[in-house]
């Protein structure tokens, strides 16, 4: 019956329904694995994990650790943007500056942020600085490379037109170059976020007295496995929400952008 209203409702919510069904299958599989494994210290049942999650949420422990981690992440990301975006502009605008700076970037880039952990532990010790440093390092490269690429992609005709009309260097920067490079920069920032959010867990796991990564490891050592799973879920959810936020920002700031980006 094509005009059956129930059918239309069903169709509209079909994606939701399908997702629910897949999640139900997933949890069923998990539960069966739990029964088969038979060791709740290794693999707790989904019910226990949700109980732990609810408990941690009510006691505010998740919010506490998540806010610490998010604050570190934001600090690192802002620092990375503050350093990398101007540097990227300089590198994009001047070929000589690019020749000066790019080799160093290309030498350091393959050394992953995590490989800096032991050395950084010596320099900064356990604390707030270490995760911020690691995340800054991880976030720096995508932003600088994307900014440079974005500036270079600027349509030369636009620049020439603006110059012909007597636009000064500063307005040229703010009204032509920045809008043209912004979509690519935003892609860089999202990549930087994804990388540094992955690195924060490692950094906090080893070298911080607080934060989501620390909490995971702490409860593992106490063998409170349901809480470990709950915190892992929290990491996924916070990461997902931050990416949603960045995506919204991207749409807001650069509504003209299509899928662009490098690296």
């Amino acid at each position: 019956m094509p005009n059956d209203p129930n059918r239309d409702v069903f169709r509209a919510y079909r994606p939701v329904w399908v997702s629910l069904r897949s999640f139900a299958c997933f949890f069923l599989l998990w539960w069966l694995l739990y029964l088969w494994n038979g060791n709740p210290l290794q693999l707790p049942s989904p019910v226990k994990v949700f109980e732990a999650l609810w408990g941690l949420l009510r006691e505010g422990e998740i919010a506490e650790h998540a806010s610490v981690s998010t604050l570190r992440m934001l600090t690192a990301l802002c620092l990375a943007i503050a350093v990398a975006v101007p540097l990227g502009f300089v590198m994009g605008l001047s070929r000589q500056a690019q020749q000066f700076i790019e080799p160093l970037v290309e030498i350091l880039r393959p050394i992953s942020g995590i490989a800096w952990l032991p050395l950084a532990l010596f320099i900064f010790g356990v604390g707030d600085t270490l995760p911020v440093f690691i995340m800054f390092y991880v976030g720096f490269f995508p932003i600088v490379l994307n900014t440079m690429a974005g500036v270079k992609q600027t349509d030369p005709r636009l620049l020439a037109a603006a110059r012909t009309m007597g636009v000064g260097p500063l307005p040229l920067l703010f009204y032509v170059l920045v809008p043209s490079a912004l979509p690519t920069i935003m892609v860089g920032i999202r990549l930087a976020f994804a990388g540094s959010w992955a690195a924060i867990v490692a950094a906090e796991l080893i070298g911080a007295p607080s934060g989501l990564g620390f909490a995971i490891e702490w409860y593992r050592q106490l063998l409170m496995t349901p809480k470990v799973f709950a915190f892992i879920l929290a990491i996924g959810v916070v990461g997902y929400l931050c990416d949603l936020g960045l995506r919204a920002l991207q749409k807001r700031l650069t509504p003209w952008a299509e899928g662009v980006g490098v690296a």
Binding site: S22, A199, R220
Partner: peptide
Amino acid sequence: RENLDPIIESFRPIAPMAILPIAILL
């Protein structure tokens, strides 16, 4: 795609390092 996408997309933001404790336990 419809059936697997939700699961894959919800695991994607969980960093490999985050599942390390579970891997150590198991």
